[in-house]
Amino acid sequence: MNNALYNQIRIFQAIAQEGGITPAARKLEITPPSVSKALKLLERQVGLPLFLRSTRRVELTDAGRALLERTTDAVQSLQWAVESVRSSNVAPSGLVRVTMSRFAYQLILRPLMAEFCRLHPQVQLELSVYDGTIHILEEGFDLGIRFGNSLEEGVVARQLLAPFREGLYVSQAYVDRYGVPQQPEDLHRHVLIGYRFITANRILPL
């Protein structure tokens, strides 16, 4: 659709909505002759009259009603597209609620907080640091940082970190005192520091 045709359709819609050429010109802040000229050009392209004209008002013909029905959504979509691109240049602002575990906060978010706040001073971050299970959508959060592959229904995930492996680690002092486990079964005879899930109230299995 070229620019001239787009403007003609917008003017045609304004005439239909306002009920006349003069009210349409007033709404669009252009002159009535400009409205009349655009309508004539559009009718010439369509090949049919779009309005029945009288001394008091204009009424849509069958062709005019069909054109109005088929172009209203299209023009609104174009206007929305332009506005969305225009608004993308506006600085981010508003409240963002984020939920994460303590480990995620320390590893991912905390090192970036100062720089993020400097770059986006109009964004207000509300952080919920909790190791239990929280349903992101039901609790009203905008986003959550999670470890693992499980997803709640209705959410979209983006990977933040490269995959990493969990492991068991020991200090040299512990090795000197208790030795090194040689097989997994030996772990039951050693002193371990485990992680307890708050919600399930159980230790993270080995």
Rank of each mutant, 00 (worst) to 15 (best):
Q106C: 04
I108M: 07
S36V: 12
Q79P: 02
V58M: 06
V75G: 02
W80G: 01
I30P: 10
T99E: 14
N2Y: 03
S93F: 10
P33F: 00
S87E: 09
A104K: 00
A91L: 01
L48I: 14
S36F: 11
G64S: 09
S93R: 13
R26D: 15
W80S: 04
L48T: 13
Y6A: 11
E69D: 04
R110N: 02
F12L: 01
K37S: 14
A16N: 03
L48M: 13
Q106N: 10
W80D: 05
G94T: 12
S87M: 08
R65I: 07
Y6F: 13
Q17A: 15
G19D: 03
R10G: 04
V35W: 03
E29K: 07
R65N: 12
S84V: 08
R26Y: 10
T99V: 15
Q45W: 12
W80E: 06
N7M: 02
P49G: 01
E43P: 01
V75C: 06
R110L: 01
R53A: 14
S93N: 11
T31G: 10
P23W: 01
L39V: 08
T71C: 09
K37L: 14
G64Y: 09
L78T: 03
E29D: 06
V35R: 03
L109G: 07
R44K: 12
S84R: 08
Q17K: 13
N2H: 05
L109R: 06
P32D: 05
I9E: 01
P32N: 05
Q76V: 12
L42V: 02
P49N: 02
A63F: 01
A66N: 07
L68M: 11
A14I: 06
A4N: 15
V85I: 14
N89G: 14
F12R: 00
A74K: 07
